[in-house]
């Protein structure tokens, strides 16, 4: 059993690297938004209402006057469709949140999801842990993207500092936690990586995440032994 204070501290500790990775990204977003003529207030509105980094950055790239509403909305839908897969996986693990699940869904980001799934491997995800992670990301995202509209001009080449590599580094480290042996996890990783890279190289947009994820899932189902479903249930009871 963990106490709320321990969960709060665990959440802060877990979210710290992802905040450090997201802040430069948000600063660049703010800077790009200013270049497109968006005001700090509009940046704050977008960061708090949409709250989804990649789709916001692409949106700013597409922005013109007057705003192409339908194209922006459709793009956001397609880029963020991966959240549907994440939500489907997370749903049962936060079923005990009750109606707070709908707020949890609003605050769902790649980072909050990945940290929570990693946490769920060891122990149940408490409300305190999830909302500590998710709300910290939310607040930092607002502050940094608005600051970017003011100071972003000073951060023009973040890739020279390797800052763009923080995000994949976090995900590589988290992905290791899901290793369940070459027989069970190997096919998932290979199928997902190969299809994601192939689709990324050939199809524009964010389809590669969905395509890679579906390929990985199919590989798991195809290569799973018949008795694995019962094993998984038994394993859960003893865990």
């Amino acid at each position: 059993m963990t106490t709320p204070l321990a969960d709060f501290r665990a959440g802060l500790l877990a979210v710290f690297p992802t905040v450090a990775a997201a802040v430069p990204f948000a600063l660049i977003l703010g800077q790009q938004a200013t270049a497109k003529g968006l005001t700090p207030a509009e940046m704050l509105a977008m960061s708090s209402i949409v709250f989804a980094g990649s789709s916001q950055l692409i949106a700013v790239g597409l922005w013109s006057t007057p705003a192409p509403i339908a194209a922006l909305a459709l793009m956001a839908f397609l880029v963020n469709l991966r959240h549907t897969l994440m939500g489907a996986s997370l749903s049962g693990k936060i079923a005990h949140f009750g109606s707070l699940r709908w707020l949890a869904a609003f605050l769902l980001t790649d980072e909050a999801w990945a940290l929570s799934e990693r946490r769920a491997l060891d122990r149940p995800i408490s409300r305190t842990f999830y909302f500590t992670v998710a709300l910290t990301m939310f607040v930092c995202w607002q502050v940094a993207s608005v600051l970017g509209t003011v100071f972003g001009a000073y951060l023009e080449h973040p890739e020279a500092w390797g800052l763009d590599f923080a995000f994949p580094a976090i995900f590589i480290a988290l992905a290791l936690g899901f290793w369940r042996g070459a027989r069970r996890t190997g096919p998932v990783l290979v199928a997902s990586a190969v299809v994601a890279v192939a689709v990324h190289a050939t199809v524009p947009g964010a389809w590669y995440v969905i395509a890679g994820a579906i390929a990985g899932i199919l590989a798991a189902v195809i290569t799973a032994p018949r008795e694995q479903a019962t094993e998984a249930l038994a394993g859960e009871a003893t865990r």
Partner: peptide, 14 residues
Amino acid sequence: DALPPAVLVAVIAP
């Protein structure tokens, strides 16, 4: 069960 690693790898690989 396979979804978390599948999504993570699909994001990372490219």
